[in-house]
């Protein structure tokens, strides 16, 4: 079995919205439509902390479709336009089938994860962005994160989890049913929280807090070693 999902490190997440923007770019989202949102856990407004000086705190959660193992939405779609894929666990959305009844939006406990195109999709700039293959958006249908299913088909990870795209290096993607995957290892090491776990949907997006627990410094160390070997005047040449 394959059970795709994400691990997001809230220690490293600084709520910068780069992942939200990567999703918007990759999926060529219409105006005012965001599949991946950044939530501030703190004060009332974005980027504000909670508490009173000196006891302040702030944390960020990024939120998209949770690709639940027991989704509330797939049960209720009368035409099966949203369904959980057998082969990888992605909760998919078929715009052609969607009749726009919005039952899935009422059934999903994760407020705001599902977006309805309330009008003909509008675009500020008239070009189709992304690496290619993102489905065309349709008026009066529901849409949401699909783990970039069109990229998965090419063996690529979702846009928001692309190598080095998160400035904090806070996002990991993989197969929870594979114990050797990065996401499984992270869960084993840090535990992990799920959102709204009492809703019994068994989401596959886990939030960890890796603060201070040590990190894989092998990349940083490897580079340091390489440089020590070539220290001095030799140029280190990059490969394209």
């Amino acid at each position: 079995m394959t059970r795709l999902g994400m691990v997001i490190d809230t220690f490293r997440c600084i709520g910068c919205h780069t992942c939200a923007m990567a999703c918007k770019l990759e999926n060529n989202l219409p105006n005012n439509n965001w599949w991946n949102r950044v939530l501030t856990v703190g004060g009332e407004d974005m980027d504000t902390p909670g508490g009173i000086y000196p006891n302040l705190s702030k944390k960020y959660f990024t939120l998209g479709c949770q690709h639940c193992t027991n989704p509330a939405c797939t049960r209720v779609c009368p035409v099966g336009a949203t369904y959980k894929r057998e082969e990888d666990g992605v909760v998919f959305q078929d715009y052609d089938k969607c009749i726009g009844c919005r039952m899935c939006m009422a059934a999903c406990p994760y407020t705001g994860v599902r977006n309805f195109n309330w009008e003909e999709p509008q675009y500020y700039v008239g070009i189709q962005t992304g690496s290619g293959g993102a489905p065309t958006h349709k008026k009066h249908t529901v849409e949401k994160c699909t783990l970039c299913a069109h990229r998965l088909a090419r063996g690529e990870e979702p846009a928001c989890c692309q190598d080095s795209i998160c400035p904090g290096r806070a996002r990991y993607f993989g197969d929870f049913d594979d114990p050797s995957s990065k996401v499984s290892q992270l869960l084993a090491r840090y535990g992990g929280e799920q959102l709204l776990s009492d809703m019994q949907t068994e989401p596959n997006i886990y939030y960890i807090d890796s603060r201070g627990a040590g990190k894989d410094l092998s990349i940083a160390n490897a580079y340091k070693e390489a440089l020590n070997k070539t220290a001095g005047s030799e140029a280190v040449v990059a490969s394209h």
């Binding site: 910068c16 919205h17 780069t18 939200a20 923007m21 990567a22 918007k24 770019l25 990759e26 500020y124 700039v125 070009i127 189709q128 962005t129 992304g130 690496s131 290619g132 692309q162 190598d163 080095s164 795209i165 400035p167 990349i219 940083a220 580079y223 280190v236 990059a238």
Partner: peptide, 27 residues
Amino acid sequence: KIVNFAPAPLLDPNYNRICLRGLTHFQ
């Protein structure tokens, strides 16, 4: 047309990056 942006590799992958602004250069 320029349609997509992603981090390109530098010699040290610690500096591979892009941000929410870089992703909107096309705008």
